Amino acid sequence: MDALNFLIEIAFDLFLITVLLRIWLQASRADFYNPMSQFVVKVTNPLILPLRRILPTLGHWDLASIVLAYAVGIGKIIALSSLTAGMLPMVSDIIIMGLAVVLFQFLSLLFWITIIRAIMSWFNTGYHPMTALMAQLTEPFLAPIRRIIPPIGGLDLSVLVLIVAIQFARILLNNLFSMGMGL
């Protein structure tokens, strides 16, 4: 049973990460021709294109992608709940837990992309498409921090501040969602 839970969780998480990356790539206006961007678009297009006929795009936000991410979060909750408990939680709990899944997955994605970008910056000697894409994704979060805390002696503390902020947000959201769920 644990192995099946693991497989279901991984399948939902990987697809949710891909959909969240698509939302993030579009919102940050990242390079569409980057190989990673092309992969994300090709994987998500089969579900997003039909949704796009119904849901419009508002500015930088693709509502079809957002709805799909939320649906994947809800699907994960329903699949895991029906497998482990044999019964579904209340609809209001599923709605809240689906939102929590999406938010926590985005914060996890932001955390790891920030960490990977920082590590890659130590070894990067030239242009690499993956480094450029990670810079396009994280720069909207790091630039405001750099305006407040400039690099000190060549050491950029914005990554550290962002990581602390992400962890703080995860703890705060965990507390809010667990109080809202009565856990």
Results as ranks from 00 to 15, higher is better:
residue 106 F to K: 04
residue 15 F to P: 02
residue 22 R to T: 04
residue 100 A to F: 15
residue 41 V to C: 07
residue 146 R to Q: 03
residue 10 I to R: 07
residue 152 I to D: 08
residue 30 A to D: 05
residue 85 A to G: 09
residue 169 A to S: 14
residue 4 L to K: 09
residue 134 M to H: 03
residue 125 T to A: 10
residue 177 F to P: 00
residue 94 I to D: 00
residue 147 R to N: 08
residue 42 K to G: 05
residue 12 F to H: 12
residue 143 A to V: 11
residue 104 F to N: 12
residue 149 I to V: 14
residue 155 L to T: 05
residue 57 T to F: 03
residue 145 I to T: 04
residue 53 R to G: 15
residue 103 L to Y: 10
residue 119 I to K: 01
residue 135 A to V: 00
residue 159 V to E: 00
residue 139 E to T: 06
residue 8 I to G: 04
residue 172 L to W: 15
residue 168 F to A: 15
residue 137 L to G: 02
residue 16 L to R: 01
residue 123 F to M: 07
residue 126 G to I: 09
residue 94 I to H: 01
residue 95 I to L: 15
residue 74 I to E: 04
residue 120 M to P: 06
residue 69 A to V: 07
residue 176 L to W: 15
residue 7 L to F: 08
residue 72 V to G: 03
residue 74 I to M: 12
residue 52 R to D: 02
residue 54 I to V: 15
residue 53 R to P: 05
residue 125 T to Y: 11
residue 30 A to P: 07
residue 99 L to W: 05
residue 136 Q to Y: 04
residue 117 R to E: 12
residue 153 G to V: 03
residue 171 I to T: 15
residue 31 D to G: 12
residue 155 L to Y: 03
residue 115 I to F: 07
residue 68 L to W: 00
residue 7 L to D: 00
residue 172 L to K: 10
residue 19 V to R: 02
residue 60 H to Q: 06
residue 159 V to L: 05
residue 32 F to V: 10
residue 63 L to D: 05
residue 171 I to H: 12
residue 37 S to H: 08
residue 5 N to D: 14
residue 41 V to Y: 13
residue 169 A to V: 10
residue 156 D to G: 08
residue 11 A to F: 10
residue 137 L to W: 02
residue 132 A to Q: 08
residue 147 R to Q: 09
residue 118 A to W: 10
residue 85 A to M: 12
residue 180 G to I: 15
residue 12 F to E: 07
residue 15 F to Q: 02
residue 128 H to G: 15
residue 158 S to Q: 07
residue 165 A to N: 12
residue 44 T to A: 10
residue 142 L to I: 09
residue 9 E to Y: 08
residue 122 W to G: 03
residue 148 I to A: 11
residue 102 V to R: 02
residue 48 I to H: 10
residue 100 A to Q: 14
residue 117 R to L: 11
residue 52 R to T: 05
residue 146 R to D: 03
residue 145 I to H: 06
residue 12 F to W: 15
residue 30 A to C: 10
residue 73 G to L: 04
residue 105 Q to I: 07
residue 92 S to F: 00
residue 36 M to R: 13
residue 124 N to I: 13
residue 80 L to N: 02
residue 42 K to L: 09
residue 179 M to W: 03
residue 33 Y to S: 13
residue 20 L to G: 01
residue 72 V to E: 02
residue 138 T to V: 14
residue 62 D to Y: 04
residue 84 T to I: 11
residue 163 I to G: 00
residue 83 L to V: 08
residue 41 V to Q: 07
residue 155 L to G: 00
residue 69 A to Y: 01
residue 54 I to E: 06
residue 152 I to Y: 12
residue 55 L to T: 09
residue 6 F to S: 11
residue 112 W to V: 15
residue 89 P to T: 00
